[in-house]
Amino acid sequence: MKKHFIILEPFQHQVSCCCPGEKHHHVIEFRQYDVWTITDDWKYVDCLGWYSLIEVNNEFQFLMHVEDIEDLYTKGIICSILDLDLRINHLRFKVNEALDAHDRELFLSFSFDLNNLQEMRSKLRYADMQVF
């Protein structure tokens, strides 16, 4: 099953290309709101471990070490689409809770965060990423 993630913070990643007779290194820059689709294609490299094929914005693909993907997720640099939707639902609840409590500061804080996440989510829909 394919899994979809969104880039929350811009970062760079170095990938190696093993061409016959020579080895190249390329740096890929990922922007905020880029969408990764982690495919079902895996590759095991002796002494290095498992790599997964990732498609970026339906434009290109590259292999990334599974532990690197897990590290990015743990650090909050990437987020699953499901996690994003859960964050939005939670913030909606917190906004309503702040309204009920007549807490202006919390309401403004949660509303700001909610608007940012909803804007991010709408950009995903607008970009016509086929992840929904």
Rank of each mutant, 00 (worst) to 15 (best):
Q32L: 11
R87D: 14
E70M: 05
E59R: 09
Y51G: 03
I78Y: 04
R31Y: 11
E70K: 12
E67G: 02
P20N: 09
C79Y: 10
C47M: 03
L63R: 13
K23H: 03
K23A: 03
V27I: 03
D68A: 15
Y44C: 00
D46E: 07
G49C: 03
H25Y: 07
I78W: 01
C47H: 00
P20D: 00
K43A: 12
W50I: 10
D83A: 06
V66Y: 15
D41M: 15
V66P: 08
H25W: 05
L53G: 00
K75Q: 13
H24I: 15
F60S: 14
H24M: 12
Q61C: 15
W50T: 05
V56Y: 15
K43E: 13
H65Q: 08
Y33G: 02
D68V: 07
S80N: 14
I78N: 09
Y33E: 14
D34T: 14
V45E: 10
Q32H: 15
D41Q: 10
F30W: 06
I38T: 07
N89M: 08
V56H: 14
L63H: 11
H24C: 14
N89T: 07
D41V: 14
T74Y: 05
L86H: 11
G76T: 07
K75Y: 11
G21L: 13
L86W: 11
N57A: 15
R31T: 07
L48S: 04
Y51Q: 03
L84A: 04
Q32A: 13
Q32R: 15
E70I: 05
D85R: 13
T39F: 07
H26P: 03
F30D: 05
E67Y: 11
G21C: 08
Q32Y: 10
E55F: 07
E70H: 07
D46M: 04
E70R: 05
I77W: 03
N57W: 11
S80Y: 10
D68W: 07
K23N: 05
M64T: 03
S80V: 11
D71T: 09
D46C: 00
R31A: 09
I88G: 01
R31S: 15
F62E: 00
L53C: 07
Y51C: 04
T74C: 04
